[in-house]
Nucleic acid binder design. Structure first.
Lengths: 253, 253
DNA sequence: CGCAGTGTTGAGACGCTTCAACTCACGTGG
DNA sequence: CCACGTGAGTTGAAGCGTCTCAACACTGCG
């Protein structure tokens, strides 16, 4: 059973970061700033029980996992790939509220129906839990509950950063912030410093940053011309001047 | 000892909503849609212990409770009044990420320093807890931890709504959303239907909605001319056409 | 009465969006 | 092997919504 978690629990023994097929991810990007994997026998009985509850689902690119407004019987944990989470207005305007990667939870919010939609951006795998048993198990396991609170608090802090971005930053500041933040969320195989993997299309970046496709494209071009970044291919990008980008991200230019 | 909580625990006996001096607020606005107060003897020993940890602080309007970037030794619970929570860019641009009222928690996010600032908008009272003992108590009390997770999840859902607002809504849509949402967050004395208390100034509304003061003023005027609202005084507002306002809020006009 | 803080209104400027044309990469089939 | 089609991305020109700057109105208070 595959379960990917990013608990904030006491440190676990560090083993090889490979063998994702039977690994439990254990990290806390804001606390310990690293993604580690714990493989082999799982010592925590709660995590084992959690794994026993799970049902593994594989998603093709574009597959819809959650549709806003529909009944919400499940909680999900992403074990591989990446998903976009978004909300829609009736006329089709879309705001992507987050990109999720391996280890992230989805659908924790209390309520009868989902309040957002979620789709796979690439081939992805998720663990699905029925809400009732999941809640029951969590309620009976303080460490699990604590981990969820910890992660949700982090997400809330990230959401506040995004509000600052959407409410007050210019297009280039938004893009700079995005390019600097993205690698920290994506636990996929360690990339060279400055190297950013872009599993999402321009339109998704636009809907995440509250811009249009055209503006995203223009800003990237401007950054390229300025020598801040280079774009070897559509799906990857290299930050050439991280310090200058950081200045842009915080509005100091 | 004054403690204001909005736990998602099992229902408690409903008593008089007054006597705020010794009350424990107990509600779940999104689940049960009402704010109730439980007064008199507190039966939950965890809440009593929480109360014993608290230190009551009174804030004058404009008083700074939390400054972004400073060490974060405390967790707060608001027992009266209202606070604004915000983030700043170096050049002074401000994004207010939320308005907090009685029952709300503040400073839960894990980290060495606060990642936002908070100021009182009116005369307010808060309970202050040192983080260590607070965490210890919460860790030892599953119901408390559960309540915090529940509340944080709600805040996260609200934050996602705000991202949709900031990223994709027009000025009038933002204002309409704001006027409809605000009463649901403010548990202060029950107001007549359609009646909205505005404890914040225009500049704060602007910084919450990602607009300027002038745009806020213009939009309110437009709404007034259209007959959607009326403004008896600077600090209060009456929604005359809730259904039309709701259409605007969801972008259907 | 005068002052300061707050809110409103107007005119022009600006940044992003909209609309449209074009390029590029990739896959398919004649 | 190349013509063709499609989806994604880029670039240009014009439009529009909000911002900026400025003047004015209102309120409360010493």
């Amino acid at each position: 059973m595959v379960v990917a978690l990013k608990p904030s629990l006491a440190p676990r023994p560090l083993l090889s970061p490979d063998r994702a097929d039977r690994s439990i991810r254990s990290d806390c990007e804001r606390c310990s700033a690293r993604t580690i994997s714990v493989c082999g026998a799982v010592d925590d009985p709660d995590l084992q029980r959690l794994g026993a509850l799970a049902e593994v689902i594989k998603l093709e690119p574009g597959a819809v996992l959650i549709r806003e407004g529909e009944p919400a019987p499940h909680v999900f944990n992403i074990t591989g790939g990446s998903l976009r989470v978004y909300k829609l207005l009736p006329d089709g305007r879309r705001q992507i509220t987050g990109f999720l990667f391996a280890g992230d939870f989805l659908g924790l919010a209390i309520g009868e129906t989902y309040v957002f939609s979620a789709e796979a951006m690439e081939v992805s795998t998720v663990c699905r839990f029925r809400k009732g048993p999941f809640r029951a198990l969590v309620a009976g396991s303080p460490p699990l509950e604590h981990m969820l609170l910890h992660r949700t608090s982090h997400e809330l802090a990230a959401a506040q950063n995004q509000m600052l971005l959407l409410g007050r930053k210019t297009a280039i500041e938004r893009m700079a912030s995005f390019l600097l933040d993205l690698p920290g969320h994506d636990p996929s195989r360690p990339t060279a410093p400055g190297h950013v993997r872009l599993p999402m299309k321009r339109g998704e970046i636009a809907d995440y940053l509250g811009l249009t496709i055209e503006t995203v494209s223009r800003v990237l071009t401007r950054m390229k011309v300025k020598g801040l970044i280079s774009i070897p291919s559509q799906n990857e990008l290299i930050v050439e001047r991280p310090e200058r980008l950081r200045q842009h991200a915080s509005g100091e230019v």
